[in-house]
Write a protein that binds this DNA or RNA. Sequence first.
DNA 1: ACACTTTGCGTAAACGTTTACAATGCCTAC
DNA 2: GTAGGCATTGTAAACGTTTACGCAAAGTGT
Lengths: 327, 327
Amino acid sequence: MSVTIKDVAKNANVSIATVSRVLAGKKEAYSSSTERKVKKAIRELGYKKNTAAVELVTMHSNVIAVLVPTPKTNFAMKIIDSIQKGADMKNLNVIILFVGDNDEKMQIKALNNVIERPVNGILLISVELFGDAVNLLKNSDIPHVFVSTAIDKESQFVSSDDFKIGYEATKFLIEKGHKKIGLSSLEKNSFIGRQRVSGYLAALNDYHLPHSNDWIVEGDYSYESGFSAMQHYKENTDITAVIGASDLVAIGIINAAKQLNINVPNQLAVVSIDGTYLVDIVSPRVTSVTQSFFTMGETALNMLFADENAVSNYMYIPFKIDEREST
Amino acid sequence: MSVTIKDVAKNANVSIATVSRVLAGKKEAYSSSTERKVKKAIRELGYKKNTAAVELVTMHSNVIAVLVPTPKTNFAMKIIDSIQKGADMKNLNVIILFVGDNDEKMQIKALNNVIERPVNGILLISVELFGDAVNLLKNSDIPHVFVSTAIDKESQFVSSDDFKIGYEATKFLIEKGHKKIGLSSLEKNSFIGRQRVSGYLAALNDYHLPHSNDWIVEGDYSYESGFSAMQHYKENTDITAVIGASDLVAIGIINAAKQLNINVPNQLAVVSIDGTYLVDIVSPRVTSVTQSFFTMGETALNMLFADENAVSNYMYIPFKIDEREST
DNA sequence: ACACTTTGCGTAAACGTTTACAATGCCTAC
DNA sequence: GTAGGCATTGTAAACGTTTACGCAAAGTGT
């Protein structure tokens, strides 16, 4: 079988306790000559720690798990990037799991996989948990924070203030002179979707502008749903501006507009929400509500390890509006 | 502390062995009345398996690890997607780890993290391992296969035939009438980079066309490196076509060309390698050598569990050329 | 020379499972 | 009535670590 601490101990002529101490680097507990012997044995035998055994006895690991809906969520990568960097500094290992989108069974499977081992914490990026999955997580007493999403204000989360995003994006367009503004391809029943719609409506209201149900279209943040939303707008409305719920949605709208001979930005102004690198590689480059995904990841990681009582449950990360060529 | 199998046993009035058997679903080994008792106790106590203990005693887990260079590698997501789907069917859990790019220390750290637990297999997507990291992996006797990359033909890998990609992309452009063709932003010293360059040169040679060192530019598959490659071409060459080593590179070239008032495809034809969704959302839409990333992931997973002796070490996945607006 | 402290190391228990083996009771066949 | 078989359950060892505890040797201060 594989090399264990016992083999090392025998080879170095010390006890397993000593080997363990050298491994753990408890410097005050062994002499430098034993250290040499042990390290030599470790090298010669090619010894590898058995993490399962370690975790069993210590009841603790230095792993944090990051759950992401699907590999397609492109902004999530930016968040993961910052989590990874932060974790490296804290000497934590990060593992990422994709939980299927909209599938309670898959969510539960992924959650169980994570809960059944002693992970240090769980970060859920943009995943909306369903019924039983929520309870599973809540009852696990593993610290967890939601990132760029939330189920309610009781659980810990960090995200942008999506009400404000809806509001500011709308306000931005209103102040450019638009009066009929679409809001495209968000999930109306999700926490985030509701917030954004509220913000959007609040802005219209503050400026005494009417609104229409036809202006808000449901969707799933995808390129395709943006593309087809544009068809809907063309046929059913006379909006002059539209907010895409994600970069891809906005790009889908723009490309559909092109196909319909609608000029962006002259006949239709488009603002996207997210501001990933995509907005800069398409043409026209897309004006965006740019979220600080990097900060979001950092903050989430800190929140995970913060004293539970010291911090508030949730945290909003500032965003900004970057004007580009689509408005 | 947390609920263990002992608590369940006590609560259900059976031995821990019985609980374990019910948990494992060894149907022939217990009566349905005990099953009921045990399951009830499990539910009431909210018992969760301790994976560390299980893995310790069984010396085996149903986890496969996927290593990816950085969260930025956008085609990797497609591969991961298929791996995930395949793994779900096989009832395996997938964990993803990002190993830093070009950093031996990080690679070793990530590898150790994985090797030290009983993972079933390791898939390395597009990661080029450095010196010690290679040995670490080879000595671990954990089955592993490289995906969309390789270190040599001795280790198992699945990828496109990058020589052929270089050859076919070049041939495609030659047959469209181009004689001076650039190859942009690949890492000349990587396995893949060398293969593509060879294929490219072979095609030029087969058609009795000259080549120039100025036509091949080193880079890192990024948008930026494509962008700056274009400046180089404009200043130092008179090429009429260029192959971008990735979609982002090609898009960078196209956008830089736009800025330099070079019309694509009329003055410069551009072909990208990869063919992810990006080629369809920019304009002009990019002609691409489209790799079958989905198949690649599937195949890699199968190879991981195939009988070691039955299959050849490596496997090439077919690709195709999709002509779009950039040529 | 003595008592006390420090340094370095070993012994053994514990972590939560799985599983080989043994034990029990019951059933069937003679 | 006895032997053998089967179904169901329990006992205990094992997996590879960490760490509390204890002990010996060496050092220190008087």
